[in-house]
């Protein structure tokens, strides 16, 4: 069972209550702990709040010295700038957001289609050097992107994949397949193989048994895995910046990073586009919160 945020909610306290007559005094100590936790929470969340605040501040207040925390004028101009260009048409940023949707979406579908059957096969069959194969698969995911991108760049230049969405989709798929296999293997392991055996005694082939009986049970797991793959591709920056350059191919991360290229930086716009970029991720992450431990360790840790 994966330990999840939800489990953490429902489970009781880990420790029993300290008897009141303890050295520290249980109450004073609890207050101290809550205070410390609050301070830490404020420190961790302040940058996020500041980002949201900056995105709705008027430019004058964005650059105010000292910084304005509460008494600023609210505006949605920055958000308008994210989607509409100054000349009235669609902005470059909105095009890059669409590109991100396409690239992340298609690569996630491909990684799922390739990864789920492989995960099932690794879970069900005794294969030669299975452990080594699985470890090999995971270690491809740990390669430093800056190193991998050098030969990929040369390879793409040979076959004309530089600055194409297909090129990005392929590399993101390759980057998500190891994760999908590891994550899905955990889910497949949880479905008893006996279901398939029973189906096969009824005359189904192994393939039919997988398709008709196991796969429907895997749907929630597939959904969670796909959401993580989507988040990884959506947030990816290194391959995007080296393998694409033109505005109509570029995904959102390099486009947002490009906003600080000039001599003056419109931080309100940076904040607004960051918010637009981050909100879908946070929503998706919230949806898969039960599987976060497995997800962020690339499917390696499950408890």
């Amino acid at each position: 069972m994966a330990v999840s945020v939800d489990d953490a909610v429902s489970a009781g306290p880990v420790r029993d209550h300290t008897p009141p007559a303890r050295r520290f005094g249980g109450r004073g100590r609890a207050v101290l702990e809550v205070a410390l936790l609050t301070v830490l929470a404020v420190v961790m969340l302040f940058p996020v709040l500041w980002m949201v605040e900056t995105s709705i501040k008027e430019n004058r207040d964005v650059y105010a010295i000292p910084a304005k925390f509460f008494d600023f004028k609210v505006t949605v101009d920055h958000f308008k700038d994210v989607f509409v260009s100054s000349s009235g048409g669609r902005s470059g940023l909105s095009v890059s957001f669409l590109n991100s949707v396409v690239v992340a979406g298609v690569s996630t579908v491909l990684a799922t289609v390739l990864g789920v059957p492989a995960a099932w096969a690794y879970s069900r069959f005794a294969l030669k050097a299975k452990k080594d194969q699985l470890f090999f698969i995971l270690s491809t995911r740990f390669m430093p992107p800056v190193v991998v991108v050098i030969p990929i760049f040369l390879m793409y230049r040979q076959v004309g994949l530089i600055d194409t969405q297909l090129g990005l989709i392929l590399i993101y798929t390759a980057f998500n397949v190891p994760f999908t296999i590891w994550m899905m293997k955990g889910f497949v392991d949880e479905v008893p193989a006996e279901y398939e055996d029973a189906a096969m005694l009824d005359g189904y082939t192994r393939l039919q048994a997988f398709w008709k009986f196991t796969l429907p049970l895997l749907v929630p797991g597939i959904a969670a895995t796909a959401v993580f793959a989507l988040i990884f591709s959506w947030n990816e920056f290194v391959f995007a910046i080296f393998l694409t350059s033109s505005d109509d191919v570029r995904t959102a991360p390099p486009a947002i990073a490009g906003l600080i290229g000039g001599t003056t930086v419109d931080w309100g716009l940076v904040a607004a586009s960051s918010v637009v970029f981050a909100v879908p991720v946070l929503v998706f992450a919230y949806l898969v919160r039960r599987h976060l431990v497995a997800g962020v360790t690339l499917g390696a840790v499950r408890r």
Binding site: V5, A8, L40, A41, M44, L45, P47, V48, W50, M51, T54, I231, W234, N235, F237, P253, P254, I256, A257, L259, I260, V265, W267, V270, A271, S274, F277, A278, V281, L282, A285, Y286, R289, L292, V296
Partner: peptide
């Protein structure tokens, strides 16, 4: 737990830009 997890889910691009600001 949910609140504390927010920074981790953000893209390094967003994190880098925003801290730069």
């Amino acid at each position: 737990t949910t609140l504390f997890l927010v920074p981790m889910m953000l893209s390094p691009v967003v994190v880098g830009l925003f801290w730069r600001f």
